[in-house]
Design a protein around this nucleic acid. Structure first.
Lengths: 342, 342
DNA sequence: ATGAAAGCGCTAACAG
DNA sequence: CTGTTAGCGCTTTCAT
């Protein structure tokens, strides 16, 4: 209930000026040893805590970086966030994270707030519905460094760090082709989102390289979550036939497919096979484990932070940069070859 | 690169005082309609963003609450954090989250920082190693409302919101007893942490009620993560016999046990059965699904925030309060009765 | 309806 | 070595 102790309070008690107190506290060389010690002792005694708000207000930078993510209960993001927090802590930066809840308007609002907080830079993974990009340009134009990670916005001059979505998808599909599959379906994400587009393109590219083509009716597009996998499979089932194998845009979507197929008595693998982009720490405990892609989430998070800090310390405006981190296939049991059961 | 626009800048442009600008921006009634409109238009044009630091510095409260968690890649916490963020957003509060990484010193440092930021209140889930509690008392004594959730500190006058750890554990063990088990082991957490103690006590209570007692050699205590489950099972295996069933203190520990047993060719269920406190969204996809406890993570998070805000708005010092949210058993396939395979 | 003055707590610049 | 002055950007009196 008591008001926090201020520099002035301490100055009064010691009969010196608050500037001296401030200097002593920060160990500046130009203050007498005795004075410094007296100040330190009093600070200790009174439980003095500097007001960071005031410190930041009078400083040029805040050593705070804003982090905007679409959600946190998401395996990739959770890991990336974790890594970002840990490295920020090492570098003595604070993170202020805001959750956009896959809502583009909220995302915008959060960015405004973060700018109002005068963060030194912004780390953003966009929502699955983000279309307008003017706010991001505003950010950069106003001189605040910005780095996108995972869900990025490419071709507009930004710095982006992401998984090798297209290549990974292509490799995965190629791997399935080599096992003998020829009829592919895709349950994909909204096409305005970079990762959806890349993964879909990788899928098409690999098929094309083998003279294959997916049937229109075997393509479904929606969101990234389990429920989208469920509804995606339902949509596929409205058609007169199923593909041999489905490529799901995310791991949660694959799980949705798994769950729904189980409810409907469709055997995976066997009746229908499955690969997806992504993985989870639980995958090797799941039956069947899904054949998918490991994304280096922590690495991407750390890399994004590193590049952001670099921009912050190096105030020239960064040119467009696209860093694409390679991914690897994780062999599960949902892609064993056409018709084969695990 | 351009300096942010300030009230003064706008005042100069309009030839009025910055006070008027400030008032107009906030829609105070005592400013002329035309002036207000001119101000609003200019603000729009210039992309004015209030400096939140300055606003907070001159305000009594910051509408910011500090959140300290031991980690984020943890099913319960992820969900609780998510809920906290969402309700805070609804109430127009900002969350500043810091991750203590299960490190008591870092936890302390983060709390200091948060106090220095003049957060209006603190939400804390302690590390698995937190022993010293003086810092928490300092917080409360200094008049900053504090609410513990999940991993709480009881009996020291704090406000705590947690799952019914003891009752849940007792119910779970009771349920196993009713299925015919009589030989129980426990892979538990450090006993200074509230949830470890409660779950262990519930375990003992249920056994005791049926005249049962665990063998010393079947009790292992450590941390809360998968690796602790692995090493815990290894320790148990050094003994001359295994219990029929193990009660694991957390879901990750149970997974560790599952993984290790699989490596060693110990069948679960069958050779060894298993129950645990906790669950995950993947549990019904895992083989075998673990019989465990559903914790209302979102509810606990929201409740914690609600109580904190209540304290913030109601400045009397809150008396000790322990809210215990009931949990429920989730039937999996690792506790089907002694000797039965799933 | 508008603004001058003072203050939030701290730091940088410059004197003494 | 220590202190004065000024300023960070905003809000709250309190006059006018």
């Amino acid at each position: 209930m008591s008001k926090p102790v201020t520099l002035q309070d301490m100055a009064n008690r010691l009969g010196i000026s608050k500037v001296s107190v401030s200097k002593a506290l920060r160990g500046q060389a130009d203050i007498g040893k005795v004075t410094t010690e007296k100040v330190l002792a009093l600070a200790q005694e009174l439980g003095y805590r500097p007001n960071i708000l005031a410190q930041k207000l009078s400083a040029k930078h805040t050593r705070t970086i804003g982090l905007v993510v679409p959600k946190i209960a998401h395996h990739f993001l959770t890991q990336a966030i974790d890594a970002i927090y840990i490295s920020a802590n090492e570098q003595n930066y604070e993170i202020v994270m805001m959750v956009s809840e896959e809502n583009a308007e909220l995302e915008r609002k959060h960015i405004e707030t973060l700018l109002s907080m005068r963060v030194d830079g912004l780390l953003i993974s966009v929502t699955e519905k983000t279309i307008e990009t003017d706010i991001f340009h505003q950010v950069v134009d106003s001189g605040t460094p910005l780095v996108f990670f995972d869900r990025v916005i490419e071709g507009q001059g930004f710095v982006c760090i992401r998984s090798a979505d297209e290549q990974g998808a292509a490799d995965l599909v190629e791997c399935a082709i080599n096992k003998g599959y020829s009829s592919f379906g895709h349950i994909g994400g909204y096409q305005q989102v970079s990762i959806s587009k890349h993964r879909y393109h990788g899928f098409l590219r690999a098929l094309d390289a083998h003279g294959l083509k997916p049937a229109e009716k075997h393509l479904v597009f929606g969101g990234f979550s389990r429920s989208d996998g469920i509804s995606g499979l339902d949509k596929l089932l409205e058609q007169d036939s199923l593909p041999e194998i489905i490529f799901a845009v995310t791991y949660p979507v694959a799980l949705g497919i798994l769950l729904r197929s189980r409810e409907l008595g469709i055997r995976i693998p066997g009746d229908l096979d499955l690969v997806c982009f992504g993985n989870s720490e639980y995958n090797n405990l799941i039956t069947p484990s899904v054949t998918g892609i490991n994304q280096p989430a922590a690495e991407i998070g750390t890399l994004a932070l590193t590049h952001l800090l670099q921009q912050i310390e190096n105030p020239e405006k960064a040119p467009e940069l696209n860093i694409i981190v390679p991914v690897e296939i994780n062999q599960g049991r949902t892609c064993m070859g056409p018709g084969k059961k695990a």
